[in-house]
Simulated assay, not measured.
Amino acid sequence: MRKLSYFIATSIDGFIGAPDGDAQFFTQWVDEEYFDYLKAEYPETLPTQGRVPLGIDDLKNRHFDTVIQGRASYDLALQADCTSPYAHMRQYVVSRSLTRSPDPAVEIVSGDVAAKVRELKREGGLGIYLCGGANLAGQLVDEIDELVIKTYPTFLGSGMPLADAGFAVREFTLDSVKSFGNGVVVTTYSRKR
């Protein structure tokens, strides 16, 4: 069975963005060493819009062949006139307000997103990349099989949490830790079953 992986950037105090969701400030930590790691290990998480100009559009997907993202994340692509931000994967956008997809390669999920994820998990193939904010992560928290947390060396004090989920103890097992000279740490956890 495929797994759902929450691949997410966060501050050292656990916020994935400013209170309004902006997370552009994290890009200051993407230096050559860290970018080389992302290209080698998680190339599919780099949006198509950036892959083409960088000449890395030929990189093969290693972990994911499907992406599910929230409306706010998808809106960032739309603001940049990109209707298919992950053209190298199957794309799902969770939204109650979008009634039609602006792109035939993007499917809108407006109903039970957890049921949709369970359906996708039963299919063959690579994993599912959860690319979204706190709200979507909160809706799917009990479906998340893996956390890949990119912790950036910055302290925000407040902002958008890692997941907007009610309190419950959910245990994970540490799989790996990779640190970089710029202070970024990538920690991978698997759900304890």
Rank of each mutant, 00 (worst) to 15 (best):
H63E: 15
H63Y: 10
H63A: 15
F64M: 04
D65G: 01
V67P: 09
I68Y: 03
Q69T: 11
Q69I: 15
Q69Y: 12
G70S: 11
R71N: 08
A72I: 15
Y74A: 00
L76D: 10
L76W: 05
L78A: 02
Q79Y: 13
Q79D: 11
D81W: 11
T83N: 08
T83I: 10
S84C: 12
S84K: 06
S84Q: 13
S84Y: 03
P85G: 04
A87W: 09
A87K: 01
H88V: 02
H88C: 05
H88P: 03
M89Q: 11
M89N: 03
R90D: 04
Q91D: 05
Y92F: 13
Y92E: 05
V93P: 04
V94Y: 06
V94Q: 11
S95V: 07
S95A: 03
S95C: 06
L98M: 09
L98K: 01
T99H: 10
T99D: 13
T99Y: 11
S101K: 01
P102N: 02
A105G: 06
A105W: 03
V106P: 00
V109C: 03
V109W: 03
D112I: 00
D112W: 07
V113L: 04
A115M: 11
A115P: 12
V117M: 05
V117W: 01
V117I: 09
V117N: 03
R118T: 08
R118M: 01
E119T: 07
E119A: 05
E119I: 07
L120W: 01
K121S: 01
E123D: 04
G124T: 09
L126I: 03
L126Y: 01
Y129D: 03
Y129K: 02
G132V: 02
G133Q: 06
G133N: 00
A134E: 04
A134V: 06
N135L: 09
N135T: 15
L136Y: 00
A137M: 08
Q139H: 07
Q139D: 10
L140F: 03
D142G: 10
D145G: 06
L147I: 14
L147F: 15
V148R: 02
V148T: 05
I149W: 08
K150A: 10
K150T: 14
K150G: 11
T151G: 05
Y152M: 15
P153V: 11
L156C: 04
L156R: 08
G157K: 04
G157Q: 00
G159D: 12
L162K: 06
L162H: 01
A163K: 11
A163R: 12
A163H: 15
A168L: 12
V169Y: 13
R170P: 06
R170F: 13
E171D: 09
E171Q: 14
T173Y: 12
T173R: 15
L174M: 08
L174D: 12
L174Q: 07
D175F: 08
S176D: 14
V177G: 07
K178F: 12
S179C: 14
S179G: 12
G181N: 15
N182P: 10
V184G: 06
V185S: 11
V185D: 04
V186E: 07
T187C: 14
T188I: 14
R191W: 07
